[in-house]
Amino acid sequence: MKILRLPQQIADIVYTITGILFCGFALKSFLVPNQFFDGGVTGVSLLLHEIYHFNIAYVIVIVNLPFILMGAYQVNKTFALKTLAAVIGLGICLLVVPFPQVTTDKLLVSIFGGVFMGIGVGLAMRGGSALDGIEVLALYTGKRISFTISEIILGINIVIFLIAAFHLGLPTALYSILTYYTASRTINFVVEGLEEYTGVTIISGQSEEIKERLVMELGRGITVYKGERGFLKESFDISNPVDIVFTVVTRLEVSRLRNMVHEIDNKAFVFTSSIKEAAGGVLKRRARH
């Protein structure tokens, strides 16, 4: 088991506690008083609370327990213990912290309830734990059936929102879908941040100047593949050797890079791809998540 240094442990604890407070605020000040839902395990917990009137603090802990056990086998025991502590912390937060109801406006509830929930879950993920076990279930199920993790999560959430529509009406279910979408986008932003990396591939006849400016002007590391360009319909037998340049930049640098390349060769073929995690090389240092 990898032992984290003390500053890293403290950062994980701060992230997790802050995430718990944000989730508690989203639930007690927005979602629960207005009978709104989220997706995943939190959505199941909110459904049980609304249908059977169980205390949400207890329900959210109990419903997460099977997924925490799955996490011990699918991820590792450290993750499972952190998640257990985080979920219990969320239950305690819901019991003892007197968050006030902020608004009854349905649009505000659906958007800002999702934003605060997403911030909370994302911060907990940065701290190495999870406040919603749905992805653990998807990971477990995905190894046994042919569906992807995203498809499994989507299927589970469709069932949740259909049940919500049946018991509480279609408008509430539709607003809750907006809450889920807002939360999921916020989670992505919190976890990846503005420094989310993007891979950029450039194919151009002016590759020498592009390589030089990428390294000397933008300070980027590059990888060069040897390829051929041409093979057009009207001249399929004609091709030329070309250096295919690949580099990794942050999301904020993509526009600058694209403008630079088109300044050199406005016919250059440039395409990008999202990169979930990158380390090493000459990448800018990022804070540990």
Score class of each variant (00 low, 15 high):
residue 105 D to M: 04
residue 226 K to A: 13
residue 151 E to S: 13
residue 77 K to S: 12
residue 89 G to C: 08
residue 101 Q to L: 00
residue 102 V to A: 01
residue 101 Q to D: 09
residue 67 F to C: 06
residue 283 L to T: 01
residue 241 P to I: 07
residue 117 M to V: 11
residue 78 T to Q: 14
residue 101 Q to I: 10
residue 118 G to F: 01
residue 104 T to K: 09
residue 29 S to T: 07
residue 66 P to K: 12
residue 90 L to I: 09
residue 94 L to K: 08
residue 137 L to T: 06
residue 258 R to W: 14
residue 87 V to C: 07
residue 284 K to S: 14
residue 38 D to T: 03
residue 282 V to A: 15
residue 16 T to M: 13
residue 163 I to V: 15
residue 160 I to E: 00
residue 153 I to E: 06
residue 175 Y to P: 02
residue 78 T to Y: 03
residue 133 G to D: 00
residue 73 Y to M: 10
residue 89 G to T: 09
residue 185 R to Y: 14
residue 260 M to Y: 11
residue 275 I to A: 11
residue 193 G to W: 06
residue 79 F to Y: 15
residue 98 P to V: 03
residue 169 G to M: 07
residue 146 S to N: 14
residue 28 K to E: 15
residue 215 V to I: 12
residue 109 V to G: 00
residue 121 V to D: 01
residue 48 L to M: 15
residue 157 N to C: 09
residue 88 I to Y: 01
residue 238 I to F: 11
residue 111 I to E: 10
residue 192 E to N: 14
residue 199 G to V: 04
residue 109 V to W: 02
residue 47 L to F: 15
residue 81 L to N: 06
residue 208 E to N: 14
residue 95 L to Y: 13
residue 242 V to D: 13
residue 192 E to A: 07
residue 66 P to N: 11
residue 190 V to A: 04
residue 55 N to T: 14
residue 130 A to R: 05
residue 37 F to N: 12
residue 190 V to I: 15
residue 208 E to V: 10
residue 69 L to M: 14
residue 58 Y to F: 08
residue 172 T to Y: 02
residue 80 A to Y: 01
residue 205 G to R: 10
residue 240 N to Y: 09
residue 152 I to S: 01
residue 132 D to V: 06
residue 177 I to A: 10
residue 110 S to Y: 12
residue 64 N to M: 06
residue 197 Y to F: 07
residue 29 S to V: 11
residue 64 N to P: 05
residue 237 D to K: 03
residue 269 F to G: 10
residue 242 V to R: 05
residue 83 T to K: 01
residue 90 L to F: 04
residue 220 R to I: 04
residue 277 E to C: 02
residue 63 V to G: 04
residue 203 I to T: 11
residue 144 R to N: 11
residue 143 K to S: 08
residue 41 V to K: 02
residue 155 G to M: 08
residue 132 D to K: 03
residue 77 K to A: 06
residue 139 L to K: 15
residue 246 F to K: 02
residue 80 A to K: 06
residue 234 E to T: 08
residue 149 I to Y: 08
residue 175 Y to L: 09
residue 196 E to R: 06
residue 179 T to C: 07
residue 47 L to C: 10
residue 225 Y to A: 07
residue 282 V to T: 15
residue 94 L to M: 14
residue 40 G to E: 10
residue 87 V to G: 03
residue 109 V to A: 06
residue 70 M to S: 03
residue 134 I to M: 11
residue 111 I to C: 02
